[in-house]
Nucleic acid binder design. Structure first.
Lengths: 133, 133
DNA sequence: TTAAATACGATAAATTTTGTCGGAATTAAA
DNA sequence: TTTAATTCCGACAAAATTTATCGTATTTAA
């Protein structure tokens, strides 16, 4: 349980590769997909999201591609996850005003505490740590 | 992201209620479902799982129901989650020998470290803490 | 014997994730 | 200026998972 989605996994694999092998140079989606046998289209979207979040720098056009823009030590896992998936937390009591439980819910306050703890947990892990090298 | 499933939420709601209002007495699935407006059948299965795991004690037959068997302070969230959903972890590199990435995967070792950390994180939170009271 | 409960497997419905397709915009190089 | 290689983006299809329902068996107090 609490598994990452493929998209996030693909992102980590891509970042790990860039970090190790092409930190200064561009690498294209196609190339990455081939290297790690990932579905090109999905990887493409993932990298686009990372570019929007300025984790990657995108260079369009022929001979374009991506490279790491923000040093991975400066990005924590909460931020990273939230670029690709929604808000980090075991529930979305906080955000979601129209929780079906409404006033019946008896675990709201404790869940909010755990969610906070969890965010802190992932805040303290940098992307660099996860991506290795 | 990393959200709990409904089943786990229902389990927490049920446990919270029992802890507060019926720690000595039985309460039936039907009653709980009514109180918190939860789907009876799904709640039923959830409670059955908790009973199998000896978190709850089940009493069959008329006037039967459930009550807490193991004090909630003695159950940590890793254990609890794993009763209802699979193994806790962001990936299942460790368990799953036939990961599609196979030898191509470049994030296995760091992911295993994070997974371990995450388990430790949830090991240190007791069910009582989450269920409140 | 009956009614009220748990137990459990099968399956249907809904939702989410994953993957694909088609085209638009950009740009280096021929 | 044309072409080929790329990012970008929205829509949609397929697959997987989660959520809910149904039917039936078993248990047991009254």
């Amino acid at each position: 349980m609490l598994k990452l989605t493929r998209k996030t996994e693909y992102a980590l694999i891509a970042l790990s590769h860039m970090q190790r092998f092409t930190p200064k140079n561009l690498i294209s989606t196609k190339e990455l997909a081939k290297l790690y046998q990932l579905p090109v289209e999905l990887l493409a979207k993932t990298l686009q999201q990372l570019a929007q979040a300025e984790i990657l720098e995108a260079v369009k056009g022929a001979y374009g591609g991506y490279k790491i823009k923000t040093p991975l030590e400066q990005i924590n896992m909460t931020e990273f996850f939230e670029v690709l998936e929604g808000e980090v937390g075991l529930t979305d009591c906080h955000t979601n005003t129209d929780c079906s439980q409404k006033n019946l819910c008896n675990i709201k306050t404790p869940m909010q505490k755990i969610n906070k703890k969890m965010r802190t947990f992932f805040d303290e892990i940098s992307l660099k740590e996860v991506v290795g090298n």
